[in-house]
C-alpha cells in the first residue's frame, strides 16, 4: 500500500514526536475491520463453505454411513439414469410454476389495500399473521383441509383424498405454498407502494393516463425492486422451507409424486442411508438455486 510508505527521514522525526508503538489511524481502521469481520466469516466458512466442498467430494462416493467407496464423476451419470431423480426434478419445475401466483396474488391484494380500504391496517396485520406460524403447523392444518371428506371436499362437494392421489397431491402442496407466501409478499408490496411518489402518478393522470396505464407505467416499474425481493424470498422458500410442508403433509408421496429435491436429499440420506447419493442431490439443488439466481440477475441487468 503506497500510502504506508514514508520517507525514512520523516518517519524518524515522527517517532521522536510520539510513541512509536502507536499504529496509524488508517491501519487501526483496517485492522479493526478485519478482526471484527472474522467471527462471521469463520462461522460461515465452517458451516457453509467447507460443507459445499465436502459435498462435492461425497457426491462422488458410494457411502452408506459405514463404508465409503470412491466412484468419481460417473456417480452423476448413474443418477441421471434414475427415473425417480427426473420425477423429483420435474416436481421442482412444476412447483416453480407456482411462484408467479405467489407474486401476482399478493400484488393484487396490496394494490387493492393501497386504495385505503377502510381498516387497511387491520387487514395488513391479518394477512401478515400466517407468516408467523411455522410451515409445520401450516402443513398440519393443510393436511386436514385436503383430507378425504375434509373441509375442501365439503366445500366443493366431492369425496377426494387430495393428498393421497398422485394427480392432485402436488397441486395441493403448491396451493398451500402459495397461500403461505401471501402474507410476506403482500407486506413487501405494500411497503413498496407506500414509498411510491404520488406526484409521479398525479403527473401521469394530468398527462391523461388511464388508471391501468398509470399502474403499468408508474406503479409497476417503481415496484420492480420489491418484486425482485419477493421473487427471491419465494424461490428460497420453495427450495428450502417447502421441506417442512412435505415432511408433514405427504412424506413425499404417494410414490415420488410430491418429493422435491430438498426432501429427496433428506429422504435419501436419512431414510435410505445413501449419504453419497444424498450429497449429490444436494449439489444438484445448489446448482438449481444458482441457476435461478443467475437468471434473476441477468433479467435485472438486461433491463
Amino acid at each position: 500500500m503506497a500510502a504506508l510508505v514514508t520517507p525514512v527521514a520523516m518517519s524518524r522525526s515522527v517517532e521522536r514526536s510520539q510513541r512509536p508503538r502507536r499504529m496509524r489511524l488508517s491501519t487501526q481502521r483496517r485492522l479493526t475491520g478485519l478482526v471484527l469481520s472474522i467471527p462471521a466469516l469463520a462461522l460461515v466458512v465452517a458451516f457453509v463453505v467447507i460443507p459445499i466442498v465436502q459435498a462435492v467430494y461425497y457426491s462422488m462416493t458410494q457411502w452408506n454411513g459405514v463404508t465409503s467407496t470412491w466412484i468419481g464423476p460417473s456417480a452423476y451419470t448413474q443418477t441421471f439414469h434414475n427415473p425417480a431423480f427426473w420425477q423429483v426434478l420435474t416436481n421442482n419445475g412444476l412447483l416453480l410454476l407456482a411462484v408467479p401466483f405467489a407474486l401476482a396474488i399478493p400484488l393484487g391484494i396490496a394494490v387493492l389495500l393501497h386504495e385505503r380500504v377502510r381498516g387497511w391496517k387491520f387487514f395488513r396485520s391479518v394477512y401478515f399473521l400466517p407468516t408467523a406460524i411455522s410451515w409445520v403447523v401450516i402443513g398440519m392444518v393443510a393436511e386436514r383441509f385436503f383430507a378425504y371428506d375434509g373441509p375442501l371436499d365439503k366445500i366443493i362437494g366431492s369425496h377426494t383424498d387430495f393428498l393421497g392421489s398422485s394427480s392432485t397431491a402436488l397441486l395441493a402442496l403448491a396451493i398451500t405454498f402459495v397461500w403461505s407466501m401471501i402474507g410476506t409478499n403482500t407486506v413487501i408490496f405494500l411497503t413498496g407502494l407506500a414509498t411510491l411518489d404520488t406526484t409521479v402518478q398525479e403527473a401521469a393522470f394530468v398527462d391523461g393516463a388511464t388508471a391501468w396505464q398509470s399502474f403499468s407505467n408508474v406503479t409497476l416499474p417503481h415496484l420492480k425492486r420489491f418484486v425482485q425481493l419477493a421473487f427471491i424470498m419465494t424461490v428460497i422458500s420453495a427450495f428450502s422451507a417447502l421441506f417442512s410442508l412435505i415432511f408433514v403433509m405427504t412424506g413425499g408421496g404417494p410414490g415420488y409424486s410430491t418429493t422435491t429435491m430438498e426432501f429427496f436429499v433428506y429422504q435419501t440420506g436419512f431414510s435410505q442411508s445413501e449419504f453419497g447419493t444424498a450429497a449429490l442431490y444436494g449439489i444438484v439443488l445448489f446448482v438449481m438455486m444458482a441457476v435461478v439466481g443467475i437468471v434473476q440477475l441477468k433479467l435485472i441487468r438486461s433491463e
Binding site: 500500500m1 481502521r29 483496517r30 485492522l31 479493526t32 475491520g33 478485519l34 471484527l36 469481520s37 462471521a40 466469516l41 460461515v44 458451516f47 457453509v48 463453505v49 467447507i50 460443507p51 459445499i52 465436502q54 459435498a55 461425497y58 428460497i236 427450495f239 428450502s240 421441506f243 429435491m261 430438498e262 436429499v265 433428506y266 440420506g269 449419504f275 444424498a278 450429497a279 444436494g282 449439489i283 439443488l285 445448489f286 438455486m289 444458482a290 439466481g293
Partner: peptide, 30 residues
C-alpha cells in the same frame, strides 16, 4: 472499517444466503 478485500468478503458472506441447507445437509450432519 473497510479493509482490503472487505467488499469481496462481504459479497461472499451475503452469497451464502442463497445456499439452501439441504444442499449441504449431508456434510453438515457428518
Amino acid at each position: 472499517l473497510q479493509f482490503r478485500g472487505s467488499q469481496g468478503v462481504f459479497l461472499a458472506l451475503v452469497g451464502a444466503m442463497m445456499v439452501p441447507l439441504q444442499s449441504i445437509l449431508i456434510p453438515e450432519y457428518v
